[in-house]
Design a protein around this nucleic acid. Structure first.
Lengths: 347, 347
DNA sequence: GCGAGTTGTTGAAACGTTTTATTTCCCGGA
DNA sequence: TCCGGGAAATAAAACGTTTCAACAACTCGC
């Protein structure tokens, strides 16, 4: 019995079925749903009843087709394995929900190709907007994404051109903060463990670190730079192994993020190097696990959730027809959180 | 000049524009895109050129409307802040991509209401299928979701009814494994720090723990149960505070997951309780941070990524018209990873 | 008892695809 | 010369909404 019997194959009941069953026109059903005030109380409740009875569910694709764009904001981050981005996404989600929008979460794994793939997908979906942490400092993918006319906001990245809004933390200041802290503790041979140099975050933090070194009157080669392919725990372990081979061995290390620092900390443990006695260690992001680490980790804190929320707000201000929208760059200040991993003052 | 000039307001160029510009019908453009063999080489390349020139992008909503359902799989987990679920989602994403599908990632924050909201959204989107870790053991939301006819697979949850496929780890066995390990180390007063009791995972692990206690010939009240509202680090800290008030004070603690264990570990540190000397501690999930913790954490490992991938495979087997599909439950075995947090044998 | 609102409802167009049935064209064989 | 047949392209229907102009039925003020 293929005719409109009770729901067997679901997803099959459309607004037309509801209209027919309620003895009313299609437009009226639509109004009952979207502008309840335009419809009489009696009709409204009858329609509601039929909807429940039939288990009718609006087709998002149909409404979207009609209205032109979706109620989804895309958030494309570097790595969901990094709690910093998880916090950021929570902030974004909360803000989006306040405006009746959903967030679709994706991560590029720092791969420009994956990034590009996701961006095309967003274009096909006609998403409301995109929040993105670009996988390359150049932001080349975004440049070509631009022609689709979908607005986007850079997250965790200062942007020079005035293509788009951005929310970031002053990474140069953060790097300086971290390195100065180490130097003030008397260290003279330090290392910077960087992530991929293509990432603006890594590069900027190094700039800040070098600036602190210069300010302290030390030669530029007082800071050894180790770069790694990724910003994760495993890369931190690898960097740790390489660090042990350096001569002179640095007495303090600044890692581009906490994941690297945690990995490096493990490597030091395995090698019998004591932290902070033999080696001071400082991370970046102040993720929840930094405090719970083998040795509680000194770190540079960023207001992750706030950044996500602000980015969403900026995006919405742009999409919600703000007349004469001017792109805006919000820059937060990083904050140094001192814990045991740098506590021991060198003699 | 509002007429079809060069692209100013993007997103505006449709298949119709392409057809017109290429001097060809709409259907032909569609064919050039979807069944290139049905169209002559010359036409095909001309269409391709126009597409590039105009920057045309298919409207996903339109194709979806026509074809009935989307190329998206939804993954609804309890908490993105838990690295276990991040690993799981990576497995799911990889498997989905192999089948040309995307994954949309959401987290319910263990809130049945949020879960229900997301499920309605999935229904509206006509997603291809849903992978879900239910927020309540009863799975009530899923029961009502069922009528939409969208297939779903339970992840990280054994399911008794034969509503759906499921992928899980034997949590009873895992709980038993963990608790037996503690008992074998000579502990006689132990505690179980549970998450919300509505979660099947928490309840099952307790069942296993009790079973180990019984097998060891100890009275049931040898295990104190502390339950917490959430499965996160903060709840672990809170539980730690409560634990210190217990008399007799347990000498070993089994936490329902690693996040709780890490939080509890911090609380012990603050209180000057040494781990493992004064208190043995074991977690669950074996997230990456367990090994990097203040005291490397003994934990029960689950094959997170594999679970995500398997769940996706099961879902696709169901949706891709497998005739006479029989629901299937895949159950993996947990594995005990012993580290320092339980190493000290009690006298 | 008549125009002017107001309220509630309707019918039809439009959104951008995919697909199916149809048409056009050309070629080779009778 | 005609006909069958395959290849290539087309026209039109369908998918499920929202919205807009039009319309009917009341109520009001006079």
């Amino acid at each position: 019995m293929p005719a409109g019997g009770s729901s067997r194959n679901a997803g099959e009941v459309s607004i037309k079925d509801v209209a027919h069953r309620a003895g009313v026109s299609i437009g009226t059903v639509s109004n009952a749903l979207n502008r309840p005030d335009r419809v009489s109380a009696e009709t409204r409740s009858r329609v509601r009843a039929v909807i429940d009875e039939l288990g009718y569910v609006r087709s998002e694709s149909a409404r979207q087709l009609r209205s032109g764009n979706s109620r989804m904001v895309a958030l494309l981050v570097l790595d969901m394995g990094n709690p910093f981005f998880v916090d950021l996404s929570r902030g974004a989600e909360r803000a989006a929900r306040n405006h009746g929008l959903g967030v679709m979460l994706c991560h590029s794994a720092q791969d420009p190709e994956a990034e590009s793939l996701y961006l095309s997908m967003f274009a096909e979906q006609r998403v409301h907007g995109v929040l993105v942490t670009p996988a390359e400092a150049s932001g080349g993918n975004l440049l070509s994404f631009r022609r689709h006319g979908i607005p986007y906001v850079f997250v965790d990245r200062v942007v020079d051109s005035d293509d788009a809004c951005s929310v970031s933390v002053d990474d140069v200041a953060g790097g300086e903060l971290a390195m100065r802290h180490l130097l003030e503790n008397g260290h003279e041979h330090v290392a910077y463990v960087s992530g991929p140099v293509e990432l603006a975050q890594c590069a900027d933090r190094l700039v800040g670190a070098r600036r602190a070194v210069a300010e302290a009157g030390l030669p530029p080669d007082a800071v050894a730079v180790l770069d790694t392919g990724r910003l994760d725990v495993q890369s931190g372990r690898d960097a740790g192994a390489r660090l042990l081979g350096l001569r002179p061995r640095p007495t303090a290390v600044f890692c581009a993020n906490d994941l690297l620092a945690l990995g490096l900390l493990q490597a030091m443990f395995d090698a019998g190097v004591r932290v902070p006695e033999d080696l001071a260690l400082i991370g970046y992001d102040d993720i929840e696990f930094a405090e719970a680490a083998a040795v509680p980790l000194t770190s540079v804190r960023q207001p992750a959730a706030r950044m996500g929320a602000t980015a969403t707000e900026l995006l919405l201000r742009e999409t919600e027809g703000e007349p004469g929208h001017e792109h805006e760059s919000v820059v937060y200040s990083p904050e140094l959180i001192v814990r045991r991993s740098t506590l021991h003052r060198r003699d």
